[in-house]
Computed example of a mutant assay.
Amino acid sequence: MTDSDPGDPLLEWNRLNKENAEHGFVSGLFQSMSETSPLVEKFSMWLLAGTGATAALLITQIESVLPYLSESGFKICLIVLVLSALLGFIAKYYSLRCEIQTKVQSKFMELVKPVLDKHEKDEDRIKEYAKQKGVTLQTDIDLSRIMNEFSRPFPFWVKWLISRKIQKTSGDRQAGFHIAVKAYMSQIRWTFFQALLFIAFILTATWYANAI
């Protein structure tokens, strides 16, 4: 048997080892990126708090503010603040989604790793014993059986969503991290728009104040 023989178990072992290491690096990159989500959330919440405080000040001091902004300027500034706050809530939603997915993925890997390690050790022993007995065994883990057991306590529509998600991400080992990263990118995008609108409020208020 030569080194190029595709049936060589050593070649398959080497391929799997490299593939697992590569996926491990990719997972690490995804997870490290998602870990910065709380920092973006802090900035977004700071903007949201500032937006709320500013809106409250404008409303409570409307009689004092109107002479400087005019009625139309006051309305426009308030609308811009409301839109900025709305985008802040959207950014918060994606922040929670990213955080939840990251924690679920990390906890899942933490809990499953010892199970897989034990399975691999037992699998090697079982295969060796089966080889001595001249018996062929199927030792691969049945993922469909796992998911069927997992989805059993859920209502039918959740089962349908789980089944649909499994079919959509079948064979994608990074699917869980993809969800977190997509949520993280959406969080950054909406936080950016939130900040732009807050800046737009400042510029609008300044423009109306100077126009009077």
Rank of each mutant, 00 (worst) to 15 (best):
T2G: 10
G7W: 05
G7D: 14
G7Q: 12
L11V: 03
N17T: 15
E19T: 13
N20Y: 04
G24N: 12
L29Y: 11
M33P: 00
S34F: 09
L39Q: 13
F43L: 13
S44M: 04
M45F: 03
W46N: 15
L47F: 11
T54M: 11
A55L: 13
A56W: 09
I62F: 03
S64G: 15
E71A: 15
G73H: 05
G73L: 03
F74R: 07
K75L: 15
L78T: 13
L78R: 01
I79E: 03
L83G: 05
A85G: 09
F89P: 00
F89V: 05
R97C: 02
C98G: 02
C98A: 09
T102D: 06
K107T: 04
F108S: 12
L111R: 07
L111F: 06
K113Y: 04
D117C: 02
D122Y: 07
A130C: 13
K131V: 02
L137F: 09
Q138H: 10
S144T: 15
S151E: 02
S151D: 01
S163P: 01
R164Y: 03
I166W: 05
Q167A: 04
T169W: 01
T169E: 09
A175E: 00
H178I: 08
I179G: 00
V181D: 07
K182G: 00
K182V: 06
A183Q: 02
Q187E: 13
F193G: 02
Q194M: 15
A195Y: 07
A195H: 07
I202T: 13
A209L: 03
I212C: 01
